[in-house]
Design a protein around this nucleic acid. Structure first.
Lengths: 221, 221
DNA sequence: ATAAATTTTTAGACTAGCCTAAAAAATATA
DNA sequence: TATATTTTTTAGGCTAGTCTAAAAATTTAT
């Protein structure tokens, strides 16, 4: 009942793809996600099906069994806990941690994962704003809100824009506002709802309500 | 110029064995260390020789090339840094960390190793008292001393006994003094050189000079 | 509804790392 | 020094995971 790193990576990919699909996940989409060939996927899916980690009907798609899903969620839990560790404890920039976490996520000790979780103070979200599954595989899904709806002193991460005009995107770039940027609301002016925000713990800027209404934010809960 | 985990483990084993051998390391001893068969070792040694990580003369032994040695030392560095992390930050007992570090040592990011080293405060020794190679692969070898020679307020780890009589060993067992136990010298009485020590951060005990003269200690430097 | 295009699977082959059994070399013993 | 023992290597084969090329099934388009 132990799985190779490759098997774990397949399960993780199938899990992620199944979030965007109502039906089973296609062989081709897995191949794309794993950067491999469809024939290799067929082979591996056969193996995972034999281990009862996925269900597979030929030429239809693949779905995770409850066991397969719980393994996938455990890998994701570890991945996100390590990302949090790398950013919060080792001061890595948030956009450099994914590759490293891809390796750390396969370290198998349950005790390690749980002690790490405790050491980090049971974080709810990783540095990209993605929720960290708990030890039972439960994931809290939190909807994005507009930056304009974020309260004073709260923090969050930019996850999208509602206005995709060239002008707006240029404004964002000029002010170092990127997908993934961390936003802390320092103050809100009553008279026009403009916000004083701290971007990525560095630059303090004032954003008009016109701007804050058009930014999607993933809060840290 | 990237190596598999298996290759890394062979290099590590060859390095450790070469410390106890003046000549080249024998195929059989590697097989024993790696828990595999001699024929498998021959295969792998051939591969490592081709990669110029070891020198090999048929039927004579194996030695690491400078490149091979520096890779081995880097793995050992990572192993010991992670062990230190697990014990000091995650509160693992010192005798439970080896297996976990065996996995963590293969995570390949140089940035990770160096940031971890910094986060831990550049420790000189791991929880077992083994020296941690620096980023250039330099290892500080420190000779053991007698517990009786340890100064007040210093700490160290029990690495051996000079008196192996049944009576002495029983005394040690009764007082929770084991190989690897962490000893902190709380006080030394002038009149008989007896020591007040804290064992494994738990029990405070008085040890006579007769006892402390017969315990080898690896200091934290 | 039939042909064309796409997706998926099968067939056969490759590498890494391991194995057993047998051959070759080195070492120990008589 | 010749023989016996031990060590090491070779030969050939196995599994996991990958690949290419071709066949089979499905979907799309005419």
């Amino acid at each position: 009942m132990t799985n190779t790193q490759t098997e774990e990576n397949y399960l993780k990919a199938i899990y992620s793809l199944s979030l965007e699909e109502t039906k089973g996940v296609s062989t081709n989409s897995i191949a794309k996600a794993m950067d491999t060939k469809a024939s290799s996927v067929t082979d591996m899916v056969k193996k995972l099906a034999q281990k009862k980690l996925v269900d597979h009907i030929k030429y239809q798609g693949v779905t995770l069994t409850p066991t397969g899903q719980s393994i996938a969620l455990n890998i994701i839990r570890k991945h996100r806990l390590w990302e949090y560790f790398l950013v919060e404890k080792l001061d890595f920039p948030w956009d450099e941690v994914h590759e490293i976490a891809e390796q750390l996520e396969h370290v198998s000790s349950k005790a390690l994962t749980n002690r790490l979780d405790q050491f980090l103070g049971h974080p709810k979200k990783d540095p990209h704003g993605d929720p960290i599954p708990d030890v039972h595989g439960n994931v809290v899904i939190s909807k994005d809100i507009r930056l304009s709806d974020l309260a004073k002193a709260s923090t969050g991460i930019i996850t999208g824009v509602l206005d995709s005009s060239k002008a707006f995107l240029n404004f964002l770039a000029d002010n170092n506002l990127k997908l993934g940027s961390k936003i802390a609301v320092a103050d809100i002016y009553d008279f026009d709802q403009s916000m004083v925000v701290l971007i990525d713990e560095k630059e303090k800027t004032i954003l008009s309500n016109q701007v804050t209404k058009n930014l999607n934010i993933n809060t840290n809960d």
